[in-house]
């Protein structure tokens, strides 16, 4: 018997709605294997999302799940963690949901260092709504709203998270499927706000407009552009041109928000009583 993914999926939910070749399914499998490896209790794990293709993920997962408003997944997840600190809180979403519409929630959750894991599936486009350009659409790439090429430089989600104060930041790709699981295990174990960005493929609304003949070509591009952090240290800036670093990019230990908030409540209560 191979790995039983369906143990963690709501009965009757497969096949999922994602397009042929969409990497979200690969990421979801990585997440399921990570959850299995950590033996997370279904009733003590909340998976929260906003709106978008990637945000359909919690609908399939047999856990405590919440499908919320666009970009606000992190805000709802923060509420769950504050009210029920014993729960494992995972937030999932796409690039448009996470760093455009939910950009503000994202940076402030990073700043607070609240203990949760935010999995961002970055496919460089708003897939569900018809292929509009997102803040991670590469410069010059075509989208339905940039038919002559995108004039905006893209966000680097990992750098944005590090700059905003996230204490664990990692990046992987949908091609490197086994690594997704390892990164997520480390991220979920980390006490603090952990961000895992997975570079993904959207053959339907991004690939077709940008001269990718098939999803296989998109996967090959992910394979060729990814450079593990350790390997990058030995490479020159010229060799790293056009490459993306993968692996654990940043990690530090800092006071965690829920614990600090608890201490504040105790301190104030004691000062009032005394």
């Amino acid at each position: 018997m191979g790995f039983d993914y369906e143990k963690y999926i709501r009965p009757g939910k497969l096949p999922h709605i994602w397009c042929p070749g969409c990497g979200h399914g690969i990421v979801m499998k990585g997440l399921i294997r990570a959850i299995d490896a950590l033996s997370l209790d279904k009733d003590k794990t909340a998976i929260v999302s906003g709106i978008g293709c990637a945000s359909r993920l919690p609908g399939y997962m047999d856990f405590c799940t919440l499908h919320t408003t666009h970009g606000r997944g992190v805000a709802f997840a923060t509420g769950i963690k504050m009210a029920r600190p014993e729960m494992n809180v995972l937030c999932v979403g796409g690039d448009g949901d996470g760093v455009a519409i939910g950009g503000n929630h994202f940076i402030h959750a990073c700043r607070r260092n609240i203990d949760m894991t935010y999995l961002i599936m970055n496919n460089n486009i708003y897939g569900m709504t018809g292929g509009q350009f997102s803040p991670t659409t590469p410069f010059g790439a075509k989208a339905s709203t940039t038919p002559y090429g995108n004039p905006d430089p893209p966000f680097d989600i990992a750098k944005l998270a590090i700059g905003a104060g996230a204490t664990f930041v990692a990046r992987g790709t949908a091609f490197h499927a086994a690594q997704i699981e390892k990164l997520l295990i480390e991220a979920i174990r980390h006490k603090g706000f952990s961000v895992v960005e997975i570079l993904d493929s959207c053959p339907t609304t991004y690939g077709r407009r940008n001269k990718f003949k098939s999803v296989v070509e998109m996967m090959n591009q992910l394979k060729e552009s990814a450079v593990p952090v350790a390997a990058a240290e030995k490479m020159s800036p010229e060799q790293l041109e056009g490459k993306v670093l993968t692996g654990v990019l940043y990690k530090e230990n800092k006071p965690e928000y829920v614990a600090e908030y608890g201490k504040l409540v105790t301190r104030v209560q004691e000062s009032m009583a005394g």
Partner: peptide
Amino acid sequence: LRCPDFAIS
């Protein structure tokens, strides 16, 4: 690992 559709085991 890479099947996005949970079709292969």
